[in-house]
Simulated assay, not measured.
Amino acid sequence: MIFHISDLAMLVIAGSVAFALVMVVQMIVLLVRRYLQERRVIASRPQELAVLRELMKAVAGAGAGDIGEAPAFLAADPAVRLRAITHVLQMVRGADREALLRIADQTHVYDAALKDLNRGDRSRRVDALRVLEQIPSAASTDAMLATMGNDPSHDVRLEAATALARTGNLPKPTAVARMLELRTRPLTRLHEALFRSSAVKHTAELERMAADEKYVRIRHLLVEALGWSGDFGVLDALERHSSDPNPEVRCAALKSARRLEHPGAARWAIGLLLDPVDAVRIQAVQTCAKLNARDAVPILSSLISSSSWWVRTRAKEALDKLRPEQRVRADITGLRL
C-alpha cells in the first residue's frame, strides 16, 4: 500500500488538530475546576469566620469542651475546620497554642491526611505531610515520625524529616542518619540543612558522631553542622577535624569556625592557608578574614601569586579587609567564563 506525500501531510495535520483539541479541552477542564474551587472557598468564608470566632472563644477557655458544642464548628466541613485551626495556630503562642493543638487532636481535623499517609500515592503522601506540618500536635508528630522511618519512598521519608525539622521535632542525628540511610544514599544540601537544625539541641551527639568512623561518609555534614550550635565548646573538635585526610571535612571545619567567629580558631585556620587543596585554601582565606587574623597577612600576601584564580581573588579580598590602608592589585588572568 503506497502513501502519497499529500496523504501523509493530511495525517500530520489531522494529528496536530486532534492534539490541539485535546489540549484545549484539558485547559477548559482545569479552568472550570479552578473556578468551582474558588467559588466554594468564597461560599465557605462566612462559615469559616464563624468557626474562627468559636475557636478563639474555645482557646480563651483553654479547653476543647466548648468547641464540641459550637454550632458553626459542628456544621462546618472538615476542610473548613482545618483551615480555621491552621489560621489561628499562626497567631497564638504558649498555653493558647497548646490548647488549640489539643482541640485539633480531639476533633480529628487531620484524619483525612492520616489516611492519605497510609494509602495514598507518593504525591498524596507528601501533601498529607504538609497538612500535618501545619498542626504539629503529638498525634501528627507521631505520624510524621512513623512516615520518616517506614515509608517505602526515600523522597517521602526526606519530606517527613523536613516537616519535622520545621516544627522542631526532628529526632536525634543518629536516628536521622539511620532512617534516611545516609551511610549509603546520595547526600544533598537538604541533608546538610537537617543536621544544622539539630545543632543546638544535639551538639554533643553531633560531635560524637563526627568522631565515629561509622559515620565517616557524612562526617563533613556533621562537622559543618557544629558551627550552627553556637557552642564554643566544639572548637577543640573542629581543630581535630581540620587535619582530617578528607578535604571536605577540612573545609567543613573552617566553615564552622567562621560561623562561630571565635578568634581562637585563627591559629589552625592560618595553617590551612598552605593546604595542598585549592578548596581548603579558599575556605581558610575566608575564615582568616572573618576572624580578623592579622597574623595571616604574610601567607595571604604569598597567595596573591597562586596558580588558582579563586585563591588569588579571595586572598586579595582578605588582605583588603585585614589591611585596608594597603589595597592589593591581584592578577585576575586565568578566569574562565
Rank of each mutant, 00 (worst) to 15 (best):
K201V: 11
D275P: 01
H241Y: 14
E213R: 08
V234G: 01
R219W: 13
R267S: 10
G233Y: 13
D244Y: 03
A211T: 06
V285A: 13
R217L: 14
A225L: 08
L274A: 12
A289G: 15
R294K: 11
A269I: 07
A315Q: 02
D212L: 14
G227P: 03
D244A: 10
A265V: 06
V311S: 02
K255V: 11
S301E: 15
A225E: 03
S308R: 09
W310M: 09
G227Y: 03
V249P: 02
S306C: 10
K290F: 06
S229E: 11
L238I: 13
P263S: 07
G271S: 15
A315I: 04
D278K: 10
A252L: 08
G233T: 14
K214Q: 12
D295K: 10
P245H: 09
L260T: 02
F232D: 12
P298W: 01
V297S: 05
A211P: 02
A279W: 06
V280S: 03
D244E: 09
G264R: 11
L222P: 03
V280I: 06
E248S: 06
R240I: 14
D278I: 07
L291M: 08
L238D: 02
V200A: 14
A266L: 07
T203Q: 15
A269R: 02
A296D: 05
G230Q: 01
R250Y: 10
D212C: 11
D295L: 12
H220Y: 15
A204T: 15
A253K: 02
E239N: 09
L226C: 05
A265I: 07
A269G: 13
Q286E: 15
N246A: 10
V234R: 02
A210S: 12
L222V: 06
V285R: 05
L254V: 03
R217Y: 14
Y215K: 09
I282S: 01
S301K: 14
L274C: 08
W309Q: 13
P263C: 05
L303S: 02
L222G: 03
D275T: 04
L303M: 08
A284M: 05
C288T: 13
K214S: 11
L226V: 02
